[in-house]
Simulated scan of single mutants.
Amino acid sequence: MKKNRLGNSDLYVSELGLGCMSLGTNQQKATNIITEALDQGINYLDTADLYDKTENEAIVGKAIKGKRDDIILATKVGNHLTEDGTWFWDPSKSYIKEQVKKSLQRLQTDYIDLYQLHGGTIEDPIDETIEAFEELKKEGLIRYYGISSIRPNVIREYVKRSSLVSVMMQYSLFDRRPEEEVFDLLEENNISVVTRGALAKGMLSDQASEVVKQKGKDGYLGYNYDELVAMTNELSKETNSLTVAALQYVLHQPAVASAVVGASSTKQLLDNLKLKDAAPFSESTYQALQRVSKPITYQNHR
Rank of each mutant, 00 (worst) to 15 (best):
A132H: 06
S149T: 09
E187D: 08
E134Q: 10
I142M: 03
F133Q: 09
E123P: 03
R176W: 02
Y111E: 13
N153M: 13
R176I: 02
S172G: 02
G140Q: 01
E139L: 06
M168G: 10
I150L: 14
P178H: 10
Q108I: 09
Q116H: 01
D184V: 06
F183D: 05
E139P: 04
E157M: 15
Y145I: 02
I122L: 12
I126T: 06
E188Y: 08
R143W: 06
T121D: 08
S162V: 08
E128A: 11
K137G: 06
R143Q: 07
E135Q: 15
Q108W: 11
K160H: 14
L117W: 13
S148E: 05
P178R: 08
V159A: 07
L173G: 06
N189M: 03
E128C: 13
R176A: 03
I130R: 02
R151N: 15
V154K: 07
E179A: 11
V165D: 08
T129R: 06
I142T: 02
E128T: 03
S149D: 14
D127K: 03
L186S: 01
R161M: 13
P152F: 00
S166C: 10
I130E: 07
E188L: 11
Q170P: 12
Q108M: 12
G140M: 01
R156Y: 15
Y144M: 04
E123M: 11
G140A: 07
T109M: 14
F133D: 05
I122H: 04
E131P: 09
T109D: 12
E128I: 04
T129I: 05
N153K: 04
M169R: 00
V165R: 05
L136F: 02
E139Q: 13
Q170Y: 13
L114H: 00
D127I: 06
L164M: 08
K137A: 12
V159C: 04
E181C: 13
G120H: 10
G146T: 03
I130M: 04
G119S: 07
S166Y: 09
T109G: 11
H118N: 04
Y158N: 01
E135T: 05
R177W: 08
L173W: 01
H118F: 05
L173P: 04
D175E: 07
Y115L: 02
L141E: 09
E181I: 13
T109H: 08
Y158V: 03
E134I: 02
Q170A: 15
E188I: 07
F174Y: 02
E134C: 11
R161K: 15
K160V: 15
E131Q: 11
E131D: 15
Y171W: 09
I130Q: 07
E131L: 10
E135W: 15
K138A: 14
E188N: 12
I122Y: 06
Q116C: 08
I112L: 10
L136S: 00
L141G: 03
